[in-house]
Design a protein around this nucleic acid. Sequence first.
DNA 1: CCTAGTTGCGTACGACGTACCCAGTTGTCT
DNA 2: AGACAACTGGGTACGTCGTACGCAACTAGG
Lengths: 238, 238
Amino acid sequence: MAGGEQRVSIWSIPERQGRGPRPAYSRAQITEAAIRIADADGLEAASMRRIAADLGTGAMSLYRYVPSRDDLIELMVDHALLEMDIPDGPTGDWRADLTLIAENTRAVWLRHTWLSGLDRPRATLGPNRLRLLEFAFGALDTGVPIDDMLTLLDMLNGYVERVVRGEIEWRREMRQSGMTPERWMIHSAPYVRELLDSGRYPMFERIVMDARLPHMSAEEQFRYGLDRVLDCIAAVQP
Amino acid sequence: MAGGEQRVSIWSIPERQGRGPRPAYSRAQITEAAIRIADADGLEAASMRRIAADLGTGAMSLYRYVPSRDDLIELMVDHALLEMDIPDGPTGDWRADLTLIAENTRAVWLRHTWLSGLDRPRATLGPNRLRLLEFAFGALDTGVPIDDMLTLLDMLNGYVERVVRGEIEWRREMRQSGMTPERWMIHSAPYVRELLDSGRYPMFERIVMDARLPHMSAEEQFRYGLDRVLDCIAAVQP
DNA sequence: CCTAGTTGCGTACGACGTACCCAGTTGTCT
DNA sequence: AGACAACTGGGTACGTCGTACGCAACTAGG
């Protein structure tokens, strides 16, 4: 029994010692190759064999650099977070700052759609995550109690992640069915009509008939909803 | 080329026609077996072979009932949603109704932790999802424009899912490292102190020093945050 | 120079989802 | 009643996956 498994993060394992032949690759190279494949063909396509083939080597060679595929994915996440374009400190306009965070998150997720499918939220306090956290909380530091800041940011991030997840799934479905949105509309019309005709789903009917949001572009939808969420945050501001 | 793939949802494929021998199982039975395994050992343990073995049959027999494993997962999601204990219509108290949805979602997700790890949000319009949708929108139907209802519910659900995802990951990490929360606290204290002593993370410092939320029980944290989110929704009510 | 440590990488194992096949069962039609 | 079409359970097989293991080649520290 004793201590149990000492699960050390990939970050605590040094990249190399100085004894044998010089390594032909690096973690960064492997991570970037993996991201390239995952961006193009999905996370499941970024298999050890495929990554190795892209680098011109054998699958098992990668294990000299990375303990497991899961650890490699952790490296990929951190590498992607690096792309968040956030200033060093809050600008004084909390609404603009939170908008910046939201749109950056969306941009990075859409560029690396595999981020939305990770089985774990990966909330580890790496340096990048901490920098983002400082910026976000600094922006919201307008007299709101600290506990409320925590929940308001969970609310904001929850909204952003949920909507972007939906966007990504929609795109994926369009791609792999080879349909255009119009064709999809036509194709699903009979099922929708059946639901409407049953008369048992009045609210669903109002969404289909009256809502204008679903007919906007993805950007407009996101922006509109984001503004509503920020309105909510503004409403509870002291 | 012609039409391309006709990807119809699992819901539009009838369970059986009336010609051959009577099927020995049913979609519901298979779905329940799959959920049982996924609850106990994780979604990846619910393989076609394992499910079939649990039912006392061969892996390929399952494909008589379900076109693919992905479709089976879709059935599992909808089946889990069945556990949501929601009345037939809104009660008139929107705040109580939305609380009911939130706490039910949390309960179901914690009971079926594999829900949080699905690669796709699975927003397909299964019968149970529709029932829930009707209840939620019916509850919020207090004069708010339909487009705002859409975003407010995205916000609420986004908050709930994000927080519960965090809870689930936390539990999983505690389990597989075999640590208690106290041990984990002690173990991570040096790293936290290092961050605080660096002086570069003032907001993080305030969270550690001043926030009371992280010291509450998971239920209390959830409840407190949920009330704040509902305050936000109340604030934009006409 | 020796040798310990590290490299790239081929082979192999036990999983996975599922395409394909075939024998057996049963509702429907002649 | 007999024929047959549509279904059933389920075995075998293929191509994938992550990765344990082993081995020859290489290079730094003594």
